[in-house]
Design a protein around this nucleic acid. Structure first.
Lengths: 341, 341
DNA sequence: TTGTATGCGTTATCAT
DNA sequence: ATGATAACGCATACAA
């Protein structure tokens, strides 16, 4: 009593392997009666097709590889959950490779996908040109879709959010509540940060607000502790300006949420002295000090659409004729006590 | 110029397929000179072995399946990250299936692993007996290791934490700072909750504190909003008692962190009126209102050890002789303003 | 409607 | 030291 295979079934049923195979695949060239017979017998003997053999035969693994810079912050893990769920629904499985913000690891991750053990790749590059050549190379043979970091110069589907609009909304809200001196805390000097800054500048221009260069702050996001120390210095410096800001916008989850901790430590009153709003997908906004006004990204949708689009490409026969889409999903804004007191 | 395979290499080199295969696998029966020749040629032509064929041949997929109830909270995502990293180091990949706290989905997830597309399974059951029979069934053919929920009645390695000690420590700390009336907020009535409650009772017994039954509170954790509403009611009720508690212990990440939001909403002073401490792996403890005293679980270690132990089993030839370990890792306690003001 | 034969790309066994 | 050949389990073109 070894494992049940097509062969063993065929033997037991006194039929040929191909008949059994076709019957189990519900082929039209098999009579209903034998189909039923075979299928029942197979079920009874708990037959499980060896997917590896199927894979080898069909060249498809029903597997999607995801390469992304981190996976523990709410933004990423929510996206991953969305991907996992829709992939499951489409009968795909997800394999995650964490590039951990390192270009070398990212390269290794991408290369490990290359061995044809995945049908397609969902890629969130570390920065706007990291491993670009490799990605282009891969794309020649394996469908690849970009998510989140959509300003990555490559021809394929891209799924991200309307970053500049998110910041614009935040600025508008701050202005509405009388905060006209807004600092903005950024991460690295590229990609998404740049787009979010754009919304900030646009809003200032539209609303006739002057832009103070010292209000644009770049933080060291290498590690949480470095980020905290760095933000502490920046806040102190800003508050000593002759014309200090009365609001801060955070351009990323980590920055915005940890900024509250820094301000609490410095005993800066929020929102009295500084209103705070920013991009954040934490579900702890209500438990923060004070409850945090957020610009939320539709993480579940990002995950879902990324998978859907990728599978679309995978299943397309003539891949050359696809019109690549650059999808930008809208953000939403939630107002809480960190801005409205 | 199709894909480079053993066959194509052999043809080009005018050698046999088996020679090439052996040369690439560094076999001792191949001369150094041909080895070098083959390996260089293969590299030059960017040869990638088809892992699917390898899988079919060897019966190993170098893939580990993870089934767990959720993946977006810090505790779970940190564990997943730990698993992913050590798996990578051991040349395994991780496939995640999210049971989403549903027994049916859990069953489907486990069954989808059954088709032999994974070499082993890491399983965190929804509750202490969910899909127990199926798990036992699977275990006959596929190595399976339990993590987090270690009070699952099955014979295999289990990797979790010393839950009762965690709560015990928290109680001790509360007593040290003069809080002798501690309520405890639990989730469902089973498994881990029970163990953590044990530490609470033990501490009370050891320290000669009376246990007030109304201090043990079970919360509805179906969704965040239900949890918040439910906790709000419980807090109100507790504070109206003739002898209200002066501290609350949360037994899980979500409960503890969201409790702060509820208390903020009710304008209950923390820690003045109620000190708060609890199990939580959020890295936002410092940004919470107020900064949160936590009992932290060694998530990275859980992930790392789980994978290591599972791979150990996978690679063991005579699986029958293994002594199953029930590993309990210590928690650590971080004191912040929610208890020490 | 059913069966036969072949191949997917590897590894492993056995000759040479 | 190298090569021929047979599996692994399945799907499919083709034959009957």
């Amino acid at each position: 009593m070894g494992k049940t295979t097509l062969k063993s079934l065929a033997q037991a049923l006194n039929m040929s392997v191909s008949t059994v195979s076709k019957a189990l695949n519900d082929s039209h060239e098999i009579s209903e009666i034998t189909k039923k017979k075979v299928q029942e017998f197979a079920k009874k003997h708990n037959y499980q097709p060896n997917v590896l053999a199927q894979f080898l035969k069909t060249g498809k693994t029903q597997t999607i590889g995801v390469v992304l810079p981190k996976m523990t912050s709410p933004f990423e893990s929510q996206i991953l959950e969305g991907m996992q769920q829709t992939a499951s629904a489409l009968h795909y499985r997800i394999v995650i490779m964490n590039s951990m913000e390192s270009e070398d690891l990212e390269k290794a991750a991408l290369q490990s996908m290359l061995d044809k053990a995945v049908d397609g790749i969902l890629f969130c590059p570390i920065h706007e040109s990291s491993n670009l050549e490799l990605a282009k190379q891969i794309q020649k043979t394996t469908p690849l879709v970009i998510f989140d970091r959509t300003n990555y110069p490559i021809d394929t589907h891209k799924i991200g959010v309307l970053n500049s609009a998110g910041t614009y909304q935040a600025c508008k809200h701050l202005l509405d509540i009388g905060r006209n001196r807004m600092a903005i805390f950024c991460g690295t000097r590229q990609g998404i940060t740049a787009t979010r800054l754009l919304g900030y500048f646009e809003a200032h221009s539209d609303f006739g607000l002057p832009v103070a260069p010292e209000y644009t702050v770049y933080c060291n996001v290498k590690s949480i502790s470095e980020l905290q120390a760095d933000m502490e210095q920046h806040v102190k410096k800003l508050l000593q300006l002759p014309n200090p800001p009365n609001a801060i916008i955070g351009v990323a989850d980590t920055i915005t949420t940890h900024l509250l901790g820094v301000l609490a430590k410095l005993e800066v009153k929020v929102p009295d002295t500084l209103a705070v709003i920013g991009f954040a997908n934490t579900d702890l906004a209500l438990s923060l000090n004070p409850s945090l006004s957020t610009i939320r990204q539709p993480t579940k949708d990002i995950g879902e659409i990324s998978v859907t689009k990728l599978v679309e490409v995978i299943q397309k026969t003539n891949r050359s004729q696809i019109e690549w889409e650059d999808i930008k999903l809208p953000t939403s804004i939630q107002l809480r006590r960190s801005t409205i007191g």
